[in-house]
Design a protein around this nucleic acid. Structure first.
Length: 866
RNA sequence: GCGGGCGUGGCGGAACUGGUAGACGCAACGGACUUAAAAUCCGUCGGGCGCAAGCCCAUGCCGGUUCAAUUCCGGCCGCCCGCACCA
């Protein structure tokens, strides 16, 4: 009797059973090998989106496969719950950030649970919870003690209307994204994490992360940006109104081109420039102009090289009578190197552009192979290739690399400077003038300076009674919160009102999961040492640099301070692609949601209510602004979690972008129906569980068994390599075969029926990581009321069934396929060759010619060369 | 500008270390069942020629290596991503 598969009831049924049995709760067990799989935790923005569904499905498949393979799996979930959107909501909707955030968490937790994820919810963390950020504050203080944190003045983007610091991304065309005010560069005292302390290690350890995408490692490598060069001092020629013995320190990676120098250039923010600007109004104006334009990315791209001649002259390091003009230039960055450079226009394009504008000399000092030193000159394109030094005194004749070394040796010997390694990576500024973040746990005292909040007073909790009417930081406006007594001297002092960058929160949550409920310390070493590192981390590639680099840094800092044993938090990383969808616009050019349009049979589209013409746009990444989004909640309500999950895994490889289509969802939905019928239609005719195995397998039963074991091998391999679309294809192949066999042959033969039962049970197991609910239901329908499918062991392929006695050998003549032969496995090459040549099609292709050569690859292919 | 990736049917994509190109799915078309529709099932499905056996062309383009190239090498063309005044 055929039953219908009821998605909603079945899915809720199994979710309840898993929850009641605490099936996915993880505990340390020294006897079992652990496997820690983690997906990037979501920001509680309101509802889950398709990106979350994909991310968590991928992680869940890994968790479930590993669990069935016998690993002790930890698969936790939490909330990256601090951040600006909560404060915006507070301003716009008059709802408290905490309220807004916790409400969202509640909604989204429900949505995630409806996905049927194999998560250990007992370890759930939320970064905005004082029980979480208390420990973050403790970590900060440990880092402070260890010298990994410091406070310094630094340049920030300041919005003078909102009275707040803006991140670079929030500055658009030099204006604040919210207020529209011209952004200023301001110097502000900020907290910094000394990430540069680990620059070398963060770089070299990338080589050990062999289960990370090459792309991410390269991006991190470029971000850290190690370069070898030299720092050296240029003495300033005495000026009437300058103190003597002044000098400018520059950084260069091309000390071999020092004899081609035309000028020195200082950053507009260089201390010496500030000094000069005091007496030079024009210079001050120039600096102000640079600072205004400097923040905009568009400006950087198009900005012309601009310089201001200070009138100062610097003496060339190797020739004190050779005077070089000193400019202030808009393209010199204060926070890289020393904030000052020497310009060698012949061998640096940017310097060349600058020099052409200010009419300075261009002297080539590297001679390309085959050029004549007497005639070689540089036009509009600087020469940056290899060659031999010339017009360079003691460097003459040396290749670039040798000349660099020689120049550095010379500089060092003369006491002018030394070779240095320079990193592009800068220390991590973590201060934010925001309310909804983790308070930085220090107190500023007039007499004692910066005093950490004593451990017994942690956490420093956010005050709840704050207002968001005034621009700026609500913590700073709060009437009482910041006024405290100094913990050291007891005098009135001021609490730090900055909060941490939210990237700090997400840089150690993987460690907190190990001891999620421990009230006393951030992590328990025993637990952390058991679980860490994370074996498989899954998330979006947009975090390839910042988040992953910060997490790697914090792990090192935690190791230094004794909290962890590992320095690399994630040994395996997988970055998934984005979800895309067609976009739609109405006649007025306004974006439309997919459900607002209706497709016509001819491919065009109209508005579903007005019937107006709709323009179908490109397929692009789902985004709220373009309204090309589909709500996962609606999909799960209509088709179930299994359908949504399988769609995420089918077709597109997980690292690539995925196009969401309605027809694709229908296809998956149909597959679920087929799976159910496959079992339900035949189950009553199958041999009972535990029936004796047939003594012999006939051809039809062997066919089923071979396919079953082939599928086990292929699907297992596909899962191992993250080829989830391949795993789907292989399970579908097995399904197709079982369906066909089940319809035709099962009733007539005991062996076939037995093989079919085996096949169906295996199929249920193979799809279980992807379709956990229907798999469990199939398993139960197959008679396993005693043991849940998730508690069974992952099937093993029988090697004997993976090899066929006969193989198909392709036969080519001159590289073109002419025939295929069915031959016994491992037939001797001679026999294969003979069979190939005997084939009528091969004979015809040869057309009487005798073969010059025959290449035989046993069990695969024969190529007859005529 | 620097770094990286990718180009395969109408579409998403498969092809492990070079060895039968197009698995699996979507769409489309034809058929069965039905009063009809839905659902389901069967079949066809890169292009061309042929009644057929079969033949020719085909993995962005041009060339190379090889018995054999989607795969390796060189040069173009196109698309995508990351970083970017980093000295």
């Amino acid at each position: 009797m055929t039953t219908r598969y009821n998605v909603q009831t079945t899915e809720l049924k199994w979710q309840k059973i898993w929850e009641d049995k605490q099936s996915f709760r993880a505990t340390e067990d020294a006897e079992r090998q652990k496997y820690y799989v983690m997906s990037m935790f979501p920001y509680p923005s309101g509802r889950i989106h398709m990106g979350h569904v994909r991310n968590y499905t991928l992680g869940d498949v890994v968790a479930r496969v590993k669990r069935m393979q016998g690993f002790n799996v930890l698969h936790p979930m939490g909330w990256d719950a601090f951040g600006l959107p909560a404060e915006n909501a507070a301003r716009e909707r008059k709802v408290h950030p905490a309220q807004w955030t916790w409400d969202n968490i509640k909604t989204m937790r429900g949505e995630l649970k409806r996905m049927g994820l194999a998560l250990d919810w007992s370890r759930e963390v939320a970064t905005c919870d004082p029980s979480y950020y208390k420990h973050q504050q403790k970590l900060f203080q440990d880092f402070l003690k260890a010298g990994l944190v410091y406070r310094k003045e630094s340049w920030v983007n300041w919005d003078p209307i909102d009275n707040t610091v803006l991140a670079n991304e929030q500055v658009i065309d030099g204006k604040g994204w919210r207020s529209g005010a011209l952004v200023e560069k301001r110097k502000l005292a900020q907290w910094f994490f000394k990430i540069t302390e680990f620059a070398d290690d963060l770089l070299s350890a990338l080589a050990t992360l062999d289960r990370w995408p090459e792309k991410v490692r390269l991006m991190q490598e470029n971000w850290i940006g190690k370069s070898e060069g030299a720092k050296l001092r240029f003495a300033l020629a005495a000026q009437p109104d300058q103190p003597p013995d002044q000098s400018i320190e520059i950084f260069t990676t091309r000390p071999d081109t020092l004899f081609g120098a035309s000028f020195l250039a200082l950053s507009p923010n260089h201390p010496l420039v500030a000094e000069l600007a005091k007496k030079d109004g024009k210079l001050a104006a120039f600096v102000a102009e640079c600072n205004r334009a400097g923040t905009s990315e568009v400006n950087i791209e198009t900005a012309e090289k601009q310089g201001y001649d200070t009138g100062l002259k610097a003496r060339h390091v190797f020739d004190k009578d050779w005077l070089l003009p000193v400019y202030v230039a808009n393209f010199v960055l204060m926070d890289y190197g020393t904030g000052a450079i020497f310009g060698c226009p012949a061998h640096d394009q940017r310097d060349l552009d600058f020099v052409r504008k200010y009419k300075l000399p261009v002297k080539p000092v590297v001679l390309p192979e085959g050029e004549d030193p007497a005639t070689f000159s540089v036009g509009d394109i600087a020469y940056t290739g290899p060659g031999k030094a010339f017009q360079s005194q003691f460097l003459d004749g040396l290749e670039v690399e040798a000349a660099k070394s020689k120049a550095i040796a010379e500089i060092k010997q003369r006491g002018l400077g030394e070779g240095v390694t320079q990193f592009r990576l800068r220390d991590w500024g973590v201060s934010r003038q925001r309310y909804w973040g983790c308070p930085i746990p220090v107190i500023h005292c007039e007499s004692c300076g910066v005093v950490p909040v004593p451990e017994k007073d942690l956490p420093v909790k956010l005050p709840e009674d704050v207002t968001f009417e005034k621009p700026g930081n609500p913590l700073d406006h709060h009437p009482t919160w910041k006024h405290v007594a100094c913990p050291q001297c007891g005098k009135p002092a001021r609490r730090e009102t900055d909060t941490f960058d939210t990237f700090v929160d997400s840089s150690w949550y993987y460690a907190r999961y190990c001891s999620a409920t421990n009230p006393d310390k951030p992590v328990d070493r025993k637990q952390a040492d058991y679980w860490l590192p994370v074996d498989q981390y899954v998330g979006g590639v947009e975090h390839a640099i910042l988040h992953l680099l910060y997490a790697r840094f914090i792990a090192r800092a935690m190791k230094t301070t004794g909290h962890l044993a590992v320095s690399e938090p994630f040994t395996g990383l997988f970055t998934q692609g984005m979800i895309c969808h067609e976009s739609y616009k109405d006649e007025n050019g306004k974006w439309l949601y997919p459900e607002e349009i209706e497709r016509k049979p001819d491919g065009s589209a109209v508005h579903v209510t007005t019937g107006g013409k709709v323009t179908i746009g490109r397929v692009e990444v789902m985004s709220k602004s373009k309204k090309n989004v589909v709500d996962p909640g609606k999909i799960i309500n209509a088709y179930g979690a299994d359908t949504a999950r399988l769609f995420m895994l089918s077709d597109s490889p997980p690292e690539r972008d995925l196009e969401w289509t309605e027809s694709g969802i229908d296809g998956v939905w149909r597959f679920l129906g087929r799976l159910w019928r496959m079992v339900d239609d035949v189950v009553d005719n199958l041999p009972v569980l535990g029936a004796a195995k047939p003594s012999a397998w006939d051809e039809p039963s062997l066919k089923i068994r071979r396919a079953t074991h082939r599928a086990i091998a292929d699907v297992s391999a596909a899962f191992d390599r993250f080829h989830f679309n391949g795993a789907v294809a292989k399970t579908r192949e097995l399904g197709n075969l079982l369906e066909e066999q089940g319809r035709s042959a099962f009733a007539v033969n005991g062996a076939t029926a037995f093989a079919l039962r085996e096949g169906l049970e295996t199929l249920a197991q193979l799809i279980a990581p992807m379709l956990p609910h229907i798999a469990e239901e199939m398993w139960e329908r197959l008679g396993h009321a005693d043991k849940m499918l998730i508690d069974t062991a992952w099937p093993k392929a029988d090697p004997a069934l993976l090899v066929d006695e006969s193989v198909t050998v392709a036969v080519q003549v001159n590289g073109k396929l002419r025939a295929t032969l069915s031959l016994p496995r491992n037939a001797p090459p001679k026999d294969i060759e003979a069979a190939a040549l005997a084939d009528p099609n091969v004979q015809r292709a040869l057309n009487g010619a005798s073969p010059k050569k025959v290449v035989v690859v046993p069990n695969k292919i024969v190529n007859v060369v005529a």
